[in-house]
């Protein structure tokens, strides 16, 4: 019985990490744009959906190789992100936070509609990346695809850290996030940084969509829920703090899996949300945000 308990716990942990990794990536995308513009991009979930659906078409219909299809899908969604910024965010004359947020909602509806027209209303599935049986670890099973997800999250995090700490562009983006006026005075093209943030956040969204699709299947309407959970992770980790988002995302996934397994699947989502609210009551700035900084921010 003792062994059974550890096995179950391990199984819930695997399940939680698999869910949480996706929340974490969606949350990172939210933060990227939040840092550059101070807004929440409500089309973030749609980036995930587009990435997943594009990958399905590339691999299942066009029979492209995984690597090629992966790159092409990410590039496609990145272009969508850039276009979104150029066509809808950049031209706004007096960009207030509220105005921009409403624009992102409009874009999300638009992208959802376009995805529905192009891919139809049904749900799409694709093969797992590796066609191997689940691995057994101490009696619990883990899908090879889950390993892909964890690996991809690790790569994204490493890339993220390297980009923002060791490249000039990354440092410029950070400067913009800290103080946009000062960054502009120092000669940084802040509008270009905004565009870049949309591109990067779309790319991360696309990666999340691509790696999760073999497990969950993708349909045009999934974006809202994925976005909502990812947003929850972003808030819980402290808006703007991407490493906080990763921890919070994983934590949220593990809480969900654990409460589903140990308490009741009927209240799985509710328990996760209550714990999230609890965290925000105690620490309004999120797990890793400071409450002083929250007071200084517009949103």
């Amino acid at each position: 019985m003792e062994a059974g308990l550890t096995t179950d716990m391990l199984q819930f942990l695997f399940m939680g990490i698999q869910r949480g990794a996706i929340y974490a990536m969606v949350a990172m995308g939210f933060n990227m744009i939040y840092n550059a513009t101070g807004i929440i991009n409500f089309a973030q979930g749609e980036f995930v959906v587009l990435g997943g659906l594009m990958m399905v078409s590339m691999t299942m219909a066009l029979n492209l190789s995984l690597v090629f299809a992966f790159l092409l899908s990410v590039v496609f969604v990145t272009v969508v992100g850039i276009l979104m910024e150029r066509l809808t965010i950049n031209p706004v004359r007096r960009p207030t936070v509220l105005r921009l947020i409403i624009i992102t909602i409009a874009v999300s509806i638009l992208l959802k509609g376009a995805a529905m027209c192009f891919w139809g209303k049904g749900s799409h599935y694709m093969r797992h990346f590796t066609d191997a049986p689940p691995l057994e670890i101490m009696g619990a099973y883990i899908l090879p695809q889950t390993l892909w997800i964890i690996g991809m999250l690790a790569l994204v995090v490493i890339g993220y850290v390297a980009f923002f700490n060791y490249t000039m562009t990354g440092k410029c983006m950070r400067a913009c996030a800290i103080n946009r006026d000062a960054a502009r005075l120092a000669g940084i093209n802040d509008r270009r940084m905004v565009m870049l943030s949309f591109a990067l956040s779309a790319a991360i969204g696309a990666i999340a969509g691509i790696i999760i699709t073999p497990i969950i299947q993708m349909d045009y309407a999934r974006g809202a829920l994925l976005g909502l959970k990812g947003f929850g992770a972003a808030v819980m980790g402290g808006l703007g703090n991407s490493m906080g988002a990763v921890v919070a995302g994983l934590l949220l996934g593990i809480i969900e899996a654990g409460s589903g397994g140990y308490i009741s699947s009927h209240y799985m989502d509710a328990i996760a949300l209550v714990i999230m609210l609890g965290v925000l009551f105690v620490r309004p700035g999120g797990l890793f945000g400071s409450s002083e900084m929250v007071r200084l921010k517009e949103f």
Binding site: G4, F12, M15, Q18, I215, I216, L225, A257, G261, S265
Partner: peptide
């Protein structure tokens, strides 16, 4: 007696409860 929401991505937790 377990349930799942339409947007759920993994039913492992529910199935383990059923198994046990």
């Amino acid at each position: 007696d377990e349930t799942y929401a339409p947007g759920d991505t993994d039913m492992t937790a529910q199935l383990i409860r059923i198994r046990n």
